[in-house]
Nucleic acid binder design. Structure first.
Length: 908
RNA sequence: GGGCACAUAGCUCAGUUGGUUAGAGCGCUACGUUCACAUCGUAGAAGUCGCCCGUUCGAAUCGGGCUGUGCCCACCA
């Protein structure tokens, strides 16, 4: 069979992928003979297309899954997608808008029909892209957060929380996105600094002077959002603020509107800020809302859903957008000379995490989850390290957030999502709702009327309170994350109590899962909430480890994002270099938890390595076929010292890769496997084996190749699988069907003393030194004779191995002499000279001097150290011993170098 | 305002409990076509480990301070 000299990733990857999937290599089931290992994928949005962040995230998971699968665990990687409420609705709305259609035009049912159609058509795009990356998920199990089973769990959870009193409905200031026209949770409102102004506005004080005239006094308030002044119902000062002692009883007038404002005193007011007087707008600011509640102020909502000013503002401003209104208002105030001054000011404003519109804090009737009770246990399990974070610093971030957690607004005014399992009896609610609305508008706090609210999985037939049958469901849907937080157990379908008690139900077998792999961005959105949900509903942690990886950035360190146009498309990289190259490069670059800086050329490492692997294999079979060797077993015949050396190195590498992977240090594991393959196996073992290519060598080569490939398989699954298949074809070895399902390497039992192989280390050092000397002598790889004098008259090793030593030192031939005219290199076992007459001593001497100087410095330090009483007293015996060996060694080396210098200076 | 990181070769980064002559990849320089691989091989140059102080016999590693960079949280009106 011809093996091409260039590795063709494209053909190989599609072929291998198909075989894996056809044969169900990634299927994982309950198997009581095996230990379970489970990862649930962070479900990508159905609107998503694969980006580098996914590639990084998924590769890490795949490496861990493949490693554990090969180690013999029942390794399940649960795949699926998230319905992504707002994001998906926005996409489909935009589609409709192109045709000039608004969702209201076609109505809720039809619109949802469009959404489902969209999801059927595009919703699995990203999963197919993950497949081409090599993600070894159990694809049979692919879940969607709006699957029927899943939705049942969502409802169960809502009802359960409601029954426990952990879900409530109330009127509070929430983050409102005027573009998406829905409430958002605090987490969904991302704070960003924007340039703005701090306006100082004069509010007149109405007070009669003694002679009965109005004063012209005013008080100055500072605000960044002047347009909200139409909703002001008070001004506030700090009670300790001496400057405004007299203000308490005064009548402060809201300009333009000409409404009288209360003056309130509150400790919360910072006298240092602005003028120390603050306008209070309870319906449009969280702090003001709190003040309003405390001081019994009215709330005046001045905006429509789309942030256009409503009828509660002066005629001229009705219908203006909030920012338009701000500009218009400033103009009017300036005209009236009511602007004292304005200063440039950085405003930290919430932005909708879906459309980046500036969020409007707004008083609104929404549903909330009480978080403090849920957080309690979720804090404990992390404090006790029942759940561990990698890297561990995230533990603090998590705990800090959890300890300051606030309630979660879960209702969304969109159509795509899980509709709240909440029903209202029209007759019971009509009175309640209308009074609620009145109160909302008048700003009085609303006492939640539970009458006529029915929380139920099914549509109730009649109202339990009044028996009425005029019942309607709440229009809102739940926050997407209200379904995502159930992912680690809801993906196992119906999780009834009885199933929970069944010892080997899938849920009980695979849950708690082993590790969750994610970016830090969704630590609060998702990770923290999953921990709370797991503990609350399954009475157990959802995962044991949380592995948080870095952010993908461009070569300048800027976060990759579509809007900035600095992305590298992983599919392009797969197309150009192959999925293995992409994966390998990412794993090598992504040190645990640190950000990954990428540019196209970063992927060359992976491509080059894949090619190296390919060619090493190709060469082996070229030689094996040429020699007509039959490889039918990997029983090692009579390993020579070189075989023993490489096997020892392989064993060490297996240890290393195991321990690094077990500690989630994938980059270190990748590097160890890479170093072994390239710099031990290819650079030395294959090179040496070329010279004396025996059947025995061929076996060791194949044995080492298979095991080295297995170590690389989790990171580079395609090429390693392909070569595994080639090995099966080319040999009569009894191997598993797929490397993906093969056993992880175990160390070979070596029946020799590790010392025995050390001679090879000495030979390698000799070879490197000879090459080095030749370079210093400007000989490069020119072939010259190599003269060897053996100190211990035993030249057996050299006789059997001189062929490859000649080659690797680029020597014409090796000859043995008892005495050398000149010694260019010497160790305990032998001396070396090169058969050359004219030596360019200039470079050589310079190099020698430099080396000598460096070594002498190091030697000096070591000698000083050993002369130091305190060092001898404090340092570990081993350290002292090492130091002594070092001195001995260096003294020898320096001595040799000086001899050499003397010899060459004396004329060669 | 609070918190968390990071700062090592031109670039991107390793360096696990303090003790090797501080490493790798890319880039750079020189040489090279030796039965796989030029997506290769050989050799080399290149770092006062951000700055200061401290602990220690000994610090890239531990502690404190400073400078710079990045990130997160907060009711920054």
């Amino acid at each position: 069979m011809e093996i091409p000299s260039k590795y063709n990733s494209k053909d190989v990857e599609s072929k291998i992928l198909k075989e894996w999937l056809d044969k169900g290599c990634f299927n994982a089931d309950v198997n009581t003979l095996k230990e379970p290992f489970c990862i649930v994928i962070p479900p990508p949005n159905i609107t998503g297309i694969l980006h580098m962040g996914h590639a990084l995230n998924s590769t890490i998971q795949d490496v861990l899954i493949r490693f554990n699968r090969m180690k013999g665990l029942s390794a399940l990687w649960m795949p699926g997608t998230d319905h992504a409420g707002i994001a998906t609705q926005n996409v489909v709305e935009r589609d409709l808008a192109k045709k000039g259609v608004k969702k209201e035009d076609i109505g809720r049912d039809k619109f949802l029909g469009r959404l489902w159609a969209w999801r059927d058509q595009y919703g699995t795009t990203i999963l197919n892209q993950l497949k081409s990356l090599g993600a070894s998920c159990d694809w049979r199990r692919t879940r969607f957060t709006m699957d029927d089973d899943y939705s049942q769990v969502v409802k169960d959870v809502f009802i359960s929380l409601y029954d426990k009193g952990l879900i409530y409905r109330g009127n509070y200031i929430i983050n409102w996105c005027p573009r998406c026209q829905t409430a958002l949770s605090d987490e969904e409102s991302a704070h960003r600094e924007i340039d703005g102004w701090l306006y100082y506005i004069k509010y007149p004080i109405r007070r009669m002077t003694d002679d009965g005239r109005r004063t012209t006094e005013y008080v100055v308030v500072a605000t960044t959002r002047p347009e909200t002044m139409f909703g002001d119902t008070a001004v506030a000062i700090n009670p300790k603020d001496e400057r405004y002692k007299g203000l308490k009883g005064a009548k402060v007038i809201l300009p333009i509107v000409d409404r009288e404002l209360k003056v309130i005193e509150d400790e919360a007011i910072d006298p240092e800020f602005g003028t120390g007087v603050v306008k209070v707008t309870p319906a449009h600011d969280p702090v003001d809302f709190m003040l309003g509640k405390k001081h019994g102020l009215e709330s005046i909502n001045i905006m429509e859903d789309n942030a256009v000013l409503n009828k509660n503002v002066p005629q001229d401003f009705i219908g203006m957008d909030r920012f338009e209104a701000r500009a218009a208002l400033i103009e009017v105030l300036e005209e009236k000379k009511l602007i004292d001054k304005k200063e440039p000011y950085k405003i930290s404003a919430g932005h909708c995490y879906r459309c980046h519109t500036i969020v409007e804090p707004r008083l609104s009737l929404q549903w909330f989850v009480k978080m403090k009770p849920l957080a309690k246990d979720a804090i404990t399990v992390v404090e006790n390290d029942e759940i561990k974070f990698y890297p561990p610093r995230w533990k603090k971030v998590y705990l800090n957030w959890m300890n300051n957690i606030s309630d979660w607004c879960i209702s969304r005014q969109i159509w795509w999502g899980h509709r709240l399992p909440v029903y209202y009896c029209r007759s019971c609610q009509s009175s309640a709702v209308s009074s609620q609305q009145e109160k909302a508008e008048s700003g009085k706090q609303i006492a939640d009327s539970l009458k006529g609210i029915i929380v139920s999985k099914e549509t109730p037939q009649k109202c339990p309170d009044c028996g009425g049958t005029d019942i309607y469901q709440d229009e809102d849907v739940l926050d997407t994350w209200f379904s995502s937080w159930l992912w680690p157990f809801a993906t196992f379908g119906k999780t009834t109590d009885s199933e929970l008690r069944t010892p080997n139900s899938e849920l009980n077998y695979f849950y708690p899962t082993n590790v969750l792999v994610t970016a830090s961005e969704i630590l609060f959105f998702w990770v923290a909430r999953m921990i709370m949900a797991g503990l609350e509903f399954k009475k157990a942690i959802p995962f044991r480890n949380v592995l948080i990886h870095g952010t993908v950035r461009d070569s300048k360190g800027v976060k990759m994002s579509k809007s900035l146009g600095n992305t590298i498309d992983p599919l392009d990289i797969i197309e150009k270099f192959g999925a293995d190259s992409l994966r390998f490069s990412l794993m090598l670059l992504a040190a645990s938890g640190s950000d990954v800086y990428l540019s196209d050329d970063k992927f060359l490492v992976g491509r080059n390595f894949a090619n190296k692997i390919w060619n090493a294999t190709r060469f082996l079979f070229l030689k094996i076929n040429e020699s007509n060797f039959k490889i039918d077993s990997l029983e090692l015949e009579i390993p020579d010292v070189i075989d023993k050396w490489v096997l020892k190195q392989l064993n060490d590498t297996i240890d290393r890769v195991n321990s690094e992977l077990e500690n989630n240090r994938i980059n270190e594991a990748t590097k160890a496997a890479y170093d072994f393959f390239w710099h031990i196996f290819c650079d030395w073992y294959i090179e040496i084996a070329k010279d004396n290519f025996t059947q025995s060598k061929a076996k060791v080569l194949i044995y080492t190749l298979i095991n080295a490939l297995k170590l690389l398989h989790p990171v580079m699954p395609f090429i390693t699988e392909e070569i595994f298949q080639i090995i099966k074809q080319q040999t009569s070895l009894d191997l598993e069907d797929f490397m993906a399902n093969s056993t992880w390497p175990v160390k070979a039992a070596l029946s020799f003393d590790g010392e025995e192989a050390k001679i090879l280390e000495i030979v390698i050092e000799t070879i490197k030194t000879v090459r080095n000397i030749k370079t210093d002598l400007n000989l490069g790889t020119k072939k010259v004779a190599l003269e060897v004098s053996l100190k211990k008259d035993d030249n057996k090793f050299w006789e059997t191995n001189k062929g490859w030593i000649e080659k690797l030192t680029f020597s014409a031939k090796i000859s043995f002499k008892s005495n050398l005219e000149r010694v260019l290199y010497r160790n305990d076992l032998w001396e070396i000279n090169l058969g050359i007459d004219d030596i360019d001593t200039k470079n050589f001497l310079a190099a020698l001097e430099k080396k000598t100087n460096n070594l002498e410095k190091v030697l000096g330090k070591a000698i000083d150290r050993l002369a130091n009483e305190k060092f001898l007293h404090h340092a570990a015996a081993e350290t002292v011993e090492n130091e002594k060996v070092k001195v001995k060694d260096l003294t020898l080396q320096v001595g040799r170098l000086k001899d050499l210098i003397k010899a060459f200076e004396g004329g060669s």
